[in-house]
Amino acid sequence: MKLKQLQAWLRQASFYAEEAYNAPYRSAIARAKREQDDLFMLLIFSEMMGVPNPASYYTLELQPLLLERFHDWHIRMGMPHSPLDNIRCC
C-alpha cells in the first residue's frame, strides 16, 4: 500500500513541478501560436480574394479545415462580420 501511495505522490509532485516550470512561458507560446495562425489564415483567405499565394499548392487541401476557424479569426481581428462576401459565418 505504501508503494502505491509513494507513486501517486511522485506523479502529483511531477505534475506540479511541470506546471510551475511551464507557467511563465504559457502566454508567450499562446501568443506566438495565435500570430502564426493569423498569418496562415491571411495567406489562405487572400488567395480566395485573388491575391496569389506562393504556398497555394500546399494550403489548398487545408482550406476546409480552416473555414471552421474563420469566424474566431475575424472576431479576433476586430471585424464583427465576415470580410468576405462569399463566406457567411455570423
Rank of each mutant, 00 (worst) to 15 (best):
M41W: 05
Q5F: 09
E35P: 00
A30Q: 13
S27M: 11
R11V: 05
I29L: 08
S82G: 12
L43Q: 13
P83D: 05
I87S: 01
A30R: 09
C90W: 10
F40C: 10
S56I: 06
A23W: 02
P54L: 05
W9I: 05
H81E: 08
D85A: 13
M48I: 08
Y57M: 14
Q5R: 15
N22T: 05
D38T: 13
W73Y: 15
R76L: 06
M79E: 07
W9G: 06
T59R: 03
M48Q: 11
R31P: 00
A32K: 08
E61N: 05
A28K: 09
A23T: 11
L84P: 00
A55S: 01
L3E: 09
D72K: 09
R11Q: 12
Q5C: 07
Q36I: 06
R69Q: 11
E19K: 15
A23P: 03
A32W: 02
L66S: 11
D72S: 12
Q36M: 06
N22G: 01
F15G: 03
D85P: 00
K33F: 05
G50Y: 03
I44M: 15
A20G: 02
Y58Q: 10
L10F: 14
A17P: 01
D37C: 07
M77K: 12
G78W: 08
W73K: 08
M1C: 06
N53C: 12
D72C: 10
Y21P: 00
R11D: 14
F40S: 10
E61Y: 13
R76G: 10
V51S: 03
A28Y: 04
A8P: 05
M1I: 02
A30W: 02
S27N: 05
A23G: 03
E68S: 09
E68Q: 10
L43R: 07
Y58A: 13
Q12G: 03
D37T: 06
A13D: 05
H81N: 12
L66V: 02
Y58M: 09
M48D: 08
L6K: 11
I87H: 01
F40M: 06
I75H: 07
L39S: 02
D37P: 00
N86L: 10
M77T: 04
R26E: 11
P54K: 09
D72L: 13
M48K: 10
K2T: 06
K33S: 12
Q12S: 07
I29N: 10
L42F: 11
A13F: 04
M48V: 12
N22P: 04
R34G: 00
S14L: 14
L66W: 15
P24H: 03
L10K: 14
R31M: 09
R76E: 01
Q7P: 04
M41D: 03
Q12F: 07
